[in-house]
Design a protein around this nucleic acid. Structure first.
Lengths: 136, 136
DNA sequence: CTGTGCATGGGAACCATTCTCACTTGCAGG
DNA sequence: CCTGCAAGTGAGAATGGTTCCCATGCACAG
């Protein structure tokens, strides 16, 4: 059974405050800055639960670290993520869907699913001199 | 400068022996079984070098572990992997490249890279009754 | 043959994530 | 309101893949 605890409320609050993908550690920091005391393990546990429920999107960056973001569309989509600040654009990608289905079929594969994510440096971070501006 | 060492030869040999994606640890085990003594760190270093040279393909499984496989095409490409038997098809994907560049630019992102992998069930595995035959 | 400096190995260091377990606490039912 | 207890929490330990360190080894040009 799901209980509503102080910690879960705090996590939801922080998640609601940002559009961008954040690591568990970042979320943990943001919680502390917001005056909430939530253990790192609890952040991980909560994100896991939310992910299972489809309430957050999860993806892995180049370093293999998991990034989370509150999910708005339940439908399948992809992301363009700034590797510096985490700013994210949700993408509809008919091209990709079509390509995947097409290629799968032509090779005799069925039940084909795909992953596709784009990482780049957004205009602002580029202007900022390619310096990592994430606040710790 | 690249030196040809006993260890690198051994790694190449083992890589040439399989079509499938293998983790560094698996490669390390395969080397030992083949009678070669190669340090784990050396396996990692070698795979890193090979990956940089485009001699092996790298992808991350669901657990975030890096998997390697000898590469036949030097050019950037993607994979269609059978989720049952691991059979892999290398794909040219001009569509995807174009889409990535296009989307990145239209959102003001620079230095855009992308990941894209397809997972499905191949015809043979489908015929075999959709039973997972991977050995643990 | 020999010197130079890249390569190696193995054990420590790293780091994200998960586990452990004693301690809290939400909450249903008295 | 109490109260019991299972779900939730947190601090730190454990895990596991990967990288780093550094003394030693060895490929290869000269």
């Amino acid at each position: 059974m799901q209980r509503m605890t102080r910690q879960r409320a705090a996590v939801s609050e922080v998640l609601a405050d940002t559009e961008d993908f954040r690591s568990a550690q970042q979320l943990h920091d943001m919680l502390r800055e917001a005056g909430h005391s939530v253990g790192l393990a609890t952040v991980y546990r909560t994100m896991q639960t939310l992910a299972e429920n489809g309430d957050v999107d999860v993806l892995r960056n180049a370093e293999g670290e998991s990034l989370f973001r509150r999910c708005r569309k339940q439908v399948h989509h992809h992301h363009l993520v700034c590797r510096i600040c985490g700013r994210t654009v949700e993408l509809d990608a008919g091209v990709v869907e079509h390509w995947a289905a097409d290629v799968g079929q032509s090779h005799g594969f069925v039940d084909v699913e795909h992953t596709a994510e784009l990482f780049g440096t957004c205009a602002e971070c580029m202007a900022a001199g390619a310096v990592d501006t994430r606040d710790a």
